[in-house]
Design a protein around this nucleic acid. Sequence first.
DNA 1: TTATTATACATAGCGATGCAAGGTATGTCA
DNA 2: TGACATACCTTGCATCGCTATGTATAATAA
Lengths: 112, 112
Amino acid sequence: MPKKQQIEHTPLLVLSLLAGEDMYGYQMILELARRSNHTFDMKEGTLYPVLHGLEQKGYLEAYRQEAPTGRVRKYYHLTRKGGEALRTETESWRQYSGAVDAVLRSSALGTA
Amino acid sequence: MPKKQQIEHTPLLVLSLLAGEDMYGYQMILELARRSNHTFDMKEGTLYPVLHGLEQKGYLEAYRQEAPTGRVRKYYHLTRKGGEALRTETESWRQYSGAVDAVLRSSALGTA
DNA sequence: TTATTATACATAGCGATGCAAGGTATGTCA
DNA sequence: TGACATACCTTGCATCGCTATGTATAATAA
């Protein structure tokens, strides 16, 4: 019985990760797990399509670069447009999570 | 171009509403809009299937009651089992929203 | 040396979720 | 009478995230 835990804001998380530094896909998965204290365990089947979508929207730019190990990685860079999207998405998130909290609080009051 | 704004935690919001008092569907939509300061505008096509699902799980019990207006409304009552679900769902939400916030913060630091 | 694991990217197909759209019915008010 | 708000419900569609799978290379273990 597979368990769902992800909820949508995947693009926000991706844009957010890339605000600090350029990253490649696999690295994003590891970083996201680390920074979220393993609450997020993003799957490759989730991430890669999202990356391609964000690139098509002009939010990200990709380039290939060889790692010290010899492997070629595909790095993503946040564009100016992507930075703007990050700001509006962050604002949406605050709005949304604040609203959920407000509903939870109002009910908790009713219970008390 | 239809816009999506809802993200999933619909059952959590419904359970939360019913923690305070029994409500009927239409009322939940109005109350949710009010308590969320109109961030949530739940559609009937979203709410009713969710109510039926929660009822089937034994989280809610429904009963019909005539309103002063003469109309018969279908009220939902939160069961004990539903109350437990509410607590675990609330905890999941805190976990999730906390993780998103953590990721957003860590990236913001990288940018600063 | 060979096999396994970790790294790294990608896509097809499935299930669940939320919404638009439509249907039914009753009460209220102009 | 007609329009609108109230009140419930369902069908069908689009989107999203996950599972599963495929490909390929580097590191490590047996």
